[in-house]
Write a protein that binds this DNA or RNA. Structure first.
Lengths: 179, 179
DNA sequence: GTCTATAGTGGGATAGAC
DNA sequence: GTCTATCCCACTATAGAC
């Protein structure tokens, strides 16, 4: 069952699972722990989700919907530096919910468990801001790469990450050449 | 014990573990499976590595050494498009050994298990090619982001990834402004 | 350096009653 | 929708003999 067709109880479960993920990380996201958080027993969850994978799909859906809202808001607000605003929103989201970010972005998307159109909705603001598909993809790759390396502590502790972000954004802000 | 001080038998074990990782993925990298591949029992491995984590550290070391060699070779060869050559080598390495790439790059580095200087060695060719730390970091982020999104199937099946790579590289090739 | 035996942990999932 | 009881699996790791 796709996440957008969940019953009310299933939705509550997904919300708690998401909270658990964000508070304690992906390894803590077990059926047992989700159940405990809800004050029920683990087997009861299987009345609402066919498998752990299905529950994770619902969590990914909640996460993508939240991200899309923030990303759309960032695209709407500023007059001038739209790409910079999107980059800032992207980074802020990842830093606010690093575990969730990685669950959504560091592995294949469970597309069959997502509402139709959600993935495209999340991508749309960037595409509108940069104008071409190649640039949207290269800009997304830059942002995802920065976030991923940051979250995993791959840059030196004294690295000036603001400078790296600014450098990449400046390079990508120029109008891409038509091919 | 750091990976560069391994005994000969430990090194053999690490090499088999690496092969197992590359052939069957990170989930298949268990002490049992490594032992089976070597024709011995899992507990025997603990005479050579204190823990699974230590064995993984040795695998990461082998991987980084291999990557550094390829990256250095790519930096040495071409006269003209050095950044493009490095990007190509980076991508080719990731595509050749996707599981290994993710083990090394999609999580924190176990720095205490690595030979001194290896991390810096792997980064050096890019830094030399682009000249500034910010640009080295933003270019690395772009390459890592592209690879990560590619390996996880996050781009549409019909996406022109060559175009996205070329777009990003072109944007990042320009000399960064001095700050 | 390898073995056997085994401890200990934690997880996903099912059956069937209420 | 929740429960109890239970199964089955897989994994890391230790002890002690050879």
């Amino acid at each position: 069952m796709p996440a957008h067709e969940l019953g009310p109880r299933a939705r509550e479960i997904a919300i708690e699972a998401r909270a658990l993920l964000n508070e304690r990380g992906p390894e803590a996201l077990t059926m047992r722990a989700v159940a405990e958080r809800l004050g029920i027993q683990a087997p009861s969850l299987y009345k609402h989700f066919a498998s752990k994978e299905a529950l994770e799909g619902a969590v990914v859906t909640l996460a993508l919907e939240d991200f899309a809202e923030r990303f759309e808001a960032a695209a709407a607000a500023p007059k001038g530096d739209r790409l910079g605003a999107l980059a800032h929103a992207y980074r802020a989201y990842a830093h606010a919910m690093p575990h969730e970010y990685q669950l959504v972005n560091d592995r294949p998307l469970p597309r069959d468990l997502l509402p139709e159109g959600l993935e495209a909705r999340a991508a749309a603001p960037l595409l509108r801001a940069v104008g071409t598909l190649e640039r949207a993809r290269s800009a997304w790759a830059f942002a995802h790469g920065m976030v991923s390396l940051e979250l995993n502590g791959r840059f030196p502790p004294d690295a000036d990450l603001e400078a790296a972000w600014e450098d990449g954004i400046r390079a990508l802000r120029r109008t891409p050449r038509r091919t």
